[in-house]
Amino acid sequence: MKAEPFEPKILAFFCNWCTYGAADLAGVSRLQYPPNVRPIRVMCSATVSPHHVLRAFQSGADGVLVGGCHVGDCHYIYGNYMTIKRIRFLQELLEFVGLGERLHLEWISSAEAQKFVQVVTEFTLKIKELGPSPLTVLSKGLPAMALSSPPPRENARAAVG
């Protein structure tokens, strides 16, 4: 049997005023892009707390994409000032624990359907290259999270009886 190709699950937070508009425009313009992205519309990219991103990874997302308005174009004037601080911080933290590069932030205005398609395509490709999230892989071994080779089970059972 041929192995199924890896189709990543990517969770996306798109701001209502810009990136979601771009996604809408991409759809109306019949532009093609990979179907791996599951969008969640938020009122502003600044409403995306680090908690949401961490929860996404904990729940098995292979990647998280955050889309907001360009700096200066935020519907709430300064919302994305906070977004970039949070996401840049979180990117560095995730990198340190080895989950790096699975979180991406992009500014996409509602007119930039082409850019939207390009970002989604590139990010999906990148996650495909990276492979499934290490958390999903490791958690299959939970609770012991056996990392190197697990102790030989059969022998252990035989010893018990």
């Binding site: 624990v97 290490p134 958390l135 490791l138």
Partner: peptide
């Protein structure tokens, strides 16, 4: 290395 790092951190966290 990234893979090693995540494995080691998850070992500690769990």
């Amino acid at each position: 290395d990234g893979d090693d790092r995540v494995r080691r951190w998850m070992y500690e966290f769990q």
